[in-house]
Structures are given as C-alpha cells and as structure tokens.
Simulated assay, not measured.
Amino acid sequence: MRLLLVALAALVLSSSAHAGEIIWRSPTTGTLKFVSPPPELEIPDPATPVDFGISYGSTRVRAGNSLYTSPIWSSGGLKTGYSFSSADLPSTLSMDLSAGLIRGRISVTGTYDFSVTISDGAGRSQTVPVAIIVE
C-alpha cells in the first residue's frame, strides 16, 4: 500500500498539469490534444479594432476645383458589402454611402481633416482619417 502511495505522489509531482488545469488522457494514445473551435463558432470581441484594409490618405486639390476621391483598398480593386458614413464631412462635399466616394468643391484654402466610418454586414466597423488639402 505504501508503495502505491509513493508511486501516486511521484506521478502527481511529475505531471505537466497545473493547479486548476484538466488534462484528459486517452487509454490508448496518451494525452488528448485540445482542438480549438472552428472560426465560424468564435464570437468576435467588439473591443478588438477591425482593419478592413481601407484608407483614404490625403488628397490635394486647388481651391474651387472639383474634388473626387475614393477609398484605397490594400488588396486592390473595389469591394462591395460595406457602408460608409461621416459625421464631420465638410458641408460642400457629399459621400456615396455604398462606395465611399467623396465629391464636391471647396473654395477656401486650408487643410480639412475628418473621418469616415466603414461598416460591414456583420456589424463591425473601422474609422479612418481623411485629409483634404486645398491650395
């Protein structure tokens, strides 16, 4: 009996398990591996910032000239399924809410900084800065 207790104590002390950790053992193959859930079952953390690979950068235009700027996609080409909005878009500009195109004219020279929020169908969003420099 004493030998059994010593063997059990040696097994516990040499185990790679930590307090509060459960290690499942298979009777035929040893330790079972943990398999993470498939991505479709994972719930995204709303606090994690999203990067859709979209930016606007800065645009230069002469005062009074027509302005036309569109989002820059890091993967190239236009994408669909996103919606665009801007709470602080300069009043003389308009935005195509499904394509993110910004059009209009600004007559007064200066730098106009504002932001555009991009949302996808899953409810995630990204806010990117936009700078228009009017010379």
Rank of each mutant, 00 (worst) to 15 (best):
P129K: 08
T117C: 03
V61A: 14
T80W: 13
T59N: 07
T31D: 09
E40G: 00
P38W: 11
I102Y: 02
T80N: 15
D113C: 10
G53S: 12
R25H: 13
G53W: 15
T29H: 06
P44S: 03
L93Q: 11
L5D: 01
P27N: 06
D88I: 02
I22L: 15
P71I: 05
A47F: 11
S94M: 01
D113Y: 14
S125K: 01
L5F: 04
A87L: 10
F34L: 00
V128S: 03
D51P: 02
L32K: 10
G57M: 05
I102L: 05
R62A: 14
T28A: 15
A47K: 09
S74I: 15
D96C: 09
P129I: 01
I54R: 03
F34V: 01
L41S: 07
A19Q: 14
V134G: 03
A7W: 00
R25L: 06
S55T: 14
S70C: 00
R62Q: 12
L97N: 00
G104C: 04
P38M: 00
F52K: 04
M95Y: 03
I23K: 07
S85R: 08
K79E: 09
S66G: 14
R124I: 05
T111S: 10
V12W: 00
L11M: 08
G110M: 06
R105F: 13
K33L: 05
I118C: 05
D120R: 09
P71C: 06
V6L: 13
I22G: 08
T59K: 10
T92I: 00
S119A: 14
A47T: 14
G123Q: 07
S86A: 10
L4V: 13
S83L: 11
L78P: 01
V128R: 05
P71T: 06
S83K: 14
V50R: 05
W24T: 05
D113N: 15
L3R: 13
T127E: 02
I22P: 02
S83M: 10
P44Y: 03
G77T: 05
L5Y: 04
L78R: 15
D113H: 13
G20R: 02
T69N: 12
T48A: 09
L101P: 00
A99Y: 05
I133F: 11
T59L: 03
L67G: 06
I72C: 00
L41A: 06
L41V: 04
T117E: 01
F34A: 02
P49R: 03
S91P: 08
L41R: 12
D45K: 04
R103C: 01
R60W: 15
G104Q: 03
S91C: 08
S86D: 04
R60F: 15
S75L: 07
I132A: 00
P46E: 00
V50G: 02
T48R: 09
Y112C: 04
P44N: 05
L4C: 12
P129G: 06
I118F: 10
V12H: 00
P46C: 07
A99S: 10
L4E: 13
E135A: 12
T29R: 11
V134M: 09
L93T: 09
F114P: 03
